[in-house]
Design a protein around this nucleic acid. Structure first.
Lengths: 170, 170
DNA sequence: TGAAAACTGTTTCCTAGGCAAACAATTCTG
DNA sequence: CAGAATTGTTTGCCTAGGAAACAGTTTTCA
């Protein structure tokens, strides 16, 4: 029965060089699938065009940007904001510090903490990357969605993961 | 200047035990950020509740489901459908085969190819997992979005990554 | 005050997931 | 038939991240 259907479809495609289409089954109705595919598509697009000299990943840029927006914050706070473990943040900070984009400065109130601050070079790089990420996402999005649709999508996703930008709550 | 502002905000929060809020900077306007956070949120929710005995990841279930929907397809076709490298598929297939959920059967037309097919146990497990994934995603989504919003979100994401289900093109 | 609890950054170890290149077997192409 | 292309596989490498343990440093509270 299924074979008969496949047979018909296959014969329809025998002349055209198209391979018989593959069904995604129930994945088309699973949000997780669409989220993952979209996430990798956006990341791949942006990575391919932002990289030239900086060779930075979206994750590292995210950390850099959060530090830039909250200079002097501690690693634990950054971890909480990024939704990852404290120990995972250490590697990211190490990389950013190795590129001389940030510094771990001592806190005079709490000697356990490190105040994360950008270097002057870090500030410049962050500003440049910020523009590139925004521009390249715009290129990707404008080819697929209208401005209103992008706005709608952002709003829905924000409600989905619930990590709203506190700067918007002023 | 920035110090003065932080000082004011901090004093506003000194009595309440709330930590001073962290700003996400431009990340709030980057779709990649929202996509990643949403993806991990959904995956974590589903993983925590679907797992009991099967202990399967969303990725492995995705492969299983695509095989179920296209029995007899080759590993290369699966790789193309999942958007990953041929060599990455081998490990996934190995795991599914180790759990006796699928089999690599020889193709009589092309002795290079393996026809991927579910075992009877695989069919049962796949059907059960399918229901659980759908149900748990529904639980997650219903707490945050309306049915129309979910529909809108799915549609927008589908256009974003462009991997439409050919079964919908009938 | 002083002991116990909690927090911070770090290290080490482990896992999942994925790419690139090389390879043998097989099929396709001219 | 010879060369090009395809398929599955292996090996090696990389990124990202969690879990647990640790020492130094507050904080709590009896």
């Amino acid at each position: 029965m299924a074979d008969a259907r496949v047979g018909r479809l296959a014969s329809q495609h025998r002349d055209a060089a198209e391979p018989p289409p593959v069904s995604y089954g129930v994945l088309g109705r699973l949000l997780g699938f669409h989220l993952r595919r979209s996430q990798t598509a956006v990341a791949a697009h942006v990575m391919d065009r932002v990289n030239p000299e900086d060779a930075i990943t979206p994750g590292l840029f995210g950390a850099l940007e959060v530090i830039a927006a909250n200079e002097g914050l501690a690693q634990s706070d950054l971890a909480k904001a990024m939704g990852v473990d404290r120990s995972s943040i250490v590697k990211a900070i190490d990389q950013l510090e190795a590129r001389s984009l940030i510094q771990r400065l001592p806190s005079d109130r709490d000697r356990r903490r490190h105040r994360l601050c950008l270097t002057p070079a870090g500030r410049a790089t962050c500003a440049r990357l910020r523009e590139r990420f925004l521009a390249q996402e715009a290129v990707f999005l404008q080819a697929r969605l209208s401005a209103e649709e992008v706005e709608t999508l952002m709003g829905l996703l924000e409600r989905l993961h619930g990590a709203a930008d506190p700067a918007c709550l002023a």
